[in-house]
């Protein structure tokens, strides 16, 4: 009997194979097409310098988007990440500037700043999570609220202006963004590590399976002995942690934070997650896709800076179109599946 079902298997599988594959490689294909377009517009697009810039720049949104993949997979949403990044950057700068007198401008101060960033990220994520689960408020509203709170806190800390890192600490901290290891800048390494950890966590651990189950059907998760509240809260904590990592590599870039830091990062992160094939209503998450999504978003901006064929005023139009096309490519198998 087992044999018989096996032969049935192959028939059904073959009928489905192309669409399934398309879904997986859709984002990769979109990125490839973008790169080809970039190269045709200007061969300098594939220069080592530009590719390094692209990867480094993708790191912020990419790292945050890895966290967002967990939140979204478990059926939540976090709109506060951009403001959270700005707030953490601001507090980090204040703490490091304040520590100069006692701790000097060396590595210890920078480590103190980074430690505080991680604590703040975890705390901010936990607040989002606890309000959503224990407070029983929709994630959209909770994080919309904290988004406003964090953003105005930065404005307040900076007195409406810009918080700047002490010049000497900047010297100590600067290599974190600008220096490289084995040819890749440190932010890219952080990005790679976060991506690998995220992938393992989502695809190879019980926690990842629980996230997927909760996003797919919360009641089933509850009846399957899953502590739904704890898992959901943890997804927000992971998100907060990712924001902290992104901030730690962001601050040394310009050594400043202001109310305009991280504006719209939340939407870019969510867009990266969705372009990568994660389902917005939860239950299905792909870290690999998210990485590609972040790269696609950065590449679009990069390509638009590489050409003067398109009016500057239409940059938003191009970005919007490419995002929609990328998602359409990725989902086109739905249509194929239905028409059968």
């Amino acid at each position: 009997m087992t044999m018989m079902t096996a032969s049935d298997d192959t028939a059904t599988k073959q009928a489905k194979r192309p669409s399934v594959d398309f879904k997986t490689i859709g984002p990769a294909l979109a990125l490839l097409i973008l790169c080809v377009i970039g190269f045709m517009l200007n061969p300098a697009f594939v220069s080592e310098g530009n590719l390094t810039n692209l990867l480094t720049r993708s790191a912020f949104i990419g790292i945050i988007a890895v966290g967002a993949t967990f939140v979204i997979t478990a059926g939540g949403i976090d709109l506060s990440v951009g403001s959270m990044a700005a707030a953490i950057a601001g507090v980090m700068i204040i703490i490091m500037n304040g520590a100069v007198e006692t701790m000097g401008t060396g590595l210890a101060t920078v480590l103190l700043g980074c430690g505080c960033a991680l604590v703040l990220g975890i705390g901010a994520g936990w607040i989002n999570g606890a309000l959503t689960t224990k407070g029983k408020i929709e994630a959209f509203i909770v994080t919309l609220g904290t988004m406003g709170i964090y953003r105005s806190l930065v404005t307040y800390f900076a007195d409406g202006g810009t918080l700047s890192l002490n010049f000497d600490i900047r010297g100590t901290y600067r290599p974190v963004y600008y220096d490289s290891f084995l040819g890749l800048p440190y932010p890219v390494w952080v990005f790679i590590c976060v991506a690998i950890c995220g992938w393992l966590l989502l695809n190879r651990t019980a926690f990842g399976r629980y996230c997927t189950a909760i996003g797919s059907n919360e009641a089933v998760a509850k009846y399957s002995a899953i502590n739904v509240d704890r898992v959901k809260t943890l997804t927000y904590v992971i998100q907060g942690l990712c924001v902290a990592f992104a901030t730690i590599i962001y601050v040394p870039r310009l050594g400043s934070a202001s109310a305009s830091t991280g504006v719209l990062w939340e939407l870019e992160a969510i867009a990266a997650v969705i372009i990568g094939g994660t389902v917005l209503k939860g239950g299905y998450g792909r870290i690999g896709g998210t990485i590609l999504g972040a790269l696609i978003l950065t590449t679009i901006g990069n390509i638009l800076n590489f050409t003067d064929l398109i009016s500057n005023y239409l940059n938003g139009t191009m970005q919007g179109l490419i995002i929609i096309v990328a998602v359409f490519l990725q989902r086109s198998d739905w249509k194929l599946g239905k028409s059968k």
């Binding site: 220069s47 810039n53 720049r57 870039r253 305009s260 800076n305 590489f306």
Partner: peptide, 23 residues
Amino acid sequence: LDHKHANWNRDDGFEVMQDFLSR
């Protein structure tokens, strides 16, 4: 050579200039 919007913002200024330098 070209002109791009950097939105009176440090981050955008950094990224747009990076791309100008590559280009």
